[in-house]
Design a protein around this nucleic acid. Structure first.
Lengths: 345, 345
DNA sequence: GACCGCAGTGTTAACGCTAACACATCTTAC
DNA sequence: GTAAGATGTGTTAGCGTTAACACTGCGGTC
């Protein structure tokens, strides 16, 4: 009996399986890759051995050999915000459903150098392509320059025909939310908008303004603040102090801001929605159970995840025939108890 | 001039850099790996070339050659819950701070086969070790059997000296929360506990019961429900209907349940905290801005992330001298407006 | 009946990297 | 002045996989 050749690593290899069955390692490889030219009988024996031995291919080696991988990279921002966290979850779920594995890289700031570095890091680690969630205001050209050489799709950015992108129409959503307040008879509608570097801030602000404009209203007071409940609280407190309640409604740029704002109002003895109506944005599931239940504009993160991944996989496979894919998702207004018709008088 | 050998892939290799500088690829490798035996002058020239050319090593090849990697795997549950999402974020941050890359795998159910498969998947993709967040009730022995052969640390499980583990003392936290209600003079304290498969459910329930016992109180009514705001709403609604408010306080197994419960109470005209006090669990940042501001038991996910990763890296490096590491984090009670002393009479 | 073609299999050479060893050259010790 | 060791560098052989080509039979064609 010849002794088994020593193995450095504990793992089984193609050769182990091949030896067990009495074929070459290449035949085993063929079985694994569903190559057509294998005798059914041989295929069966090999498959059986693979199962029996519990063999699993080494993807690093595989990647090295054929430059193909089943890892998808995701660049996001480090953030507790519902949107970011939920998008990550949705994408992860979808990635796995498609038989891929997700590798993530979280960024604190979104300069092009950071973005590029994060992408490189993921590619080095054998990612086949990356999804980049870029929440800041950026120039399409810069993104294209930084990532043009790798398969990627951008989230929450308008690719303008330069690269595939999937985004929410923040402007539309904000306009719908504000229109609703206008329709309820409100004339002084304050805006609490999230902080600047985030693109959604500008877009949602624009939406708020445009709804007021089309109704011929002067913009109510507005504040810029952190995208958190604490930010909303602070902003609303400032609004109450500075303007002595010269507003009967608030458009908040996200649900957490709305939550904080309502907390501040209630703390100051202002009843919601009796005295001030509030509309949020994002549609986090909890919003329904805020007090009062929050009227909000809902984003569908699952669709975004599904579509963007699908598109990325197409790019990876090289099917660029149709030109950069674009998709815009329209947020939907959901009416609840935090907004009500303006009181007469 | 000899023509450059054709390259299949677009990427630069060690040889490209070596050729540029006029040394062997091994010398370049030494520079990259900070091997001491390289002449400072040579090192400088190589480093310069690396920067100039923009060379970045291929980690798949590296992993194949030395079986070491800088990818950390994380197995979590697919869940919107604050705990899971925030833990993921904390871990990702810490992983990157340590110069590693994070690869995640989300599970819907936590049987040992799934756990094992997820781990294998990550290892195949060159993870050096994995962090497994196992929120379900499991037997230590099973976990050890499924994962014993790979470097791993478990989150939110008691490893009992079998494997390294980091967890919160849910029982302690729940007891503290309930004790607080007792101290406020409440005698009928209902419990709304999350669903069963999750270990935290059992532990937090025990904590609630034990605080009641030590005070010589009969357990108030209790319900089991989903760990969401909707779950809390439903549970509280049921409690109100079935028991005609035979309780003056509620211990909720997490903040979202507390939120839903408060919503249900308020919807039924029951004032919080005037008629019923509520205590939550987890300490999500938003809880402060619920209405009323929620008294809750805070878990420190950042510490958990930091410590568990540190421990995993030790395991990977093979420093098992001190035996399996264990760490228990004690949740801390934070008093806010949702709980107040029992009204006289 | 010699020849082509193809199905099924094996053999060999990458992929890009690191480890181990081999080889010069330079010190230092006696 | 020579042996022994230290220092810097190059050479070679893998890691586990897939791609490309080479080989063996067998059935069919003229």
């Amino acid at each position: 009996m010849a002794a088994l050749p020593p193995r450095k690593t504990g793992r089984l290899t193609l050769d182990d399986v091949a030896q067990e069955v009495g074929v070459s390692h290449q035949t085993v490889s063929r079985v694994i890759n569903d190559h057509p030219r294998v005798l059914p009988a041989t295929r069966a024996r090999v498959s059986a051995a693979i199962t029996r031995l519990g063999y699993r291919p080494n993807r690093a080696a595989r990647f090295l050999a054929n430059q193909r991988s089943t890892v998808i990279g995701l660049v996001t921002h480090h953030s507790d915000a519902y949107g970011a966290a939920h998008a990550l979850l949705s994408i992860q779920q979808e990635v796995q459903r498609q038989g891929y594995t997700l590798m993530t890289f979280g960024l604190k700031t979104f300069g092009m150098p950071e973005l590029r570095q994060a992408t490189e890091e993921l590619l080095e680690n054998a990612a086949a392509g990356v999804i980049v969630d870029i929440p800041y205001e950026v120039r399409q050209r810069d993104v294209q320059a930084a990532l043009g050489h790798v398969p990627f799709v951008a989230l929450d950015v308008d690719g303008r025909g330069l690269f595939p992108s999937f985004r929410f129409d923040h402007l539309h959503g904000a306009r719908e939310g504000t229109r609703h307040l206008v329709a309820m008879g409100h004339r002084q509608i304050a805006g609490i908008i999230g902080e600047k570097p985030w693109r959604a801030a500008a877009k949602r602000r624009q939406g708020w303004l445009s709804a007021l404009e089309e109704a011929g209203l002067k913009p109510g007071p507005s504040v810029e603040t952190a995208w958190t409940a604490a930010g909303g609280y602070e902003a609303a407190t400032g609004l109450l102090r500075g303007h002595h309640r010269k507003f009967t409604a608030i458009f908040a740029a996200n649900d957490l801001i709305a939550l904080g704002a309502m907390s501040a109002l209630q703390g100051a003895g202002v009843r919601v929605p009796d005295e001030v109506s509030v509309v949020g944005f994002d549609g986090m599931p909890e919003a329904e159970f805020f007090y009062p239940s929050l009227t909000t504009v809902v984003n569908d993160f699952d669709v975004l995840a599904r579509e963007s991944l699908r598109s990325l996989l197409q790019v990876i496979k090289g099917a660029e025939s149709t030109g950069p894919l674009q998709k815009v998702s329209l947020p939907k207004l959901v009416l609840r108890a935090s907004s009500r018709p303006m009181r007469k008088g």
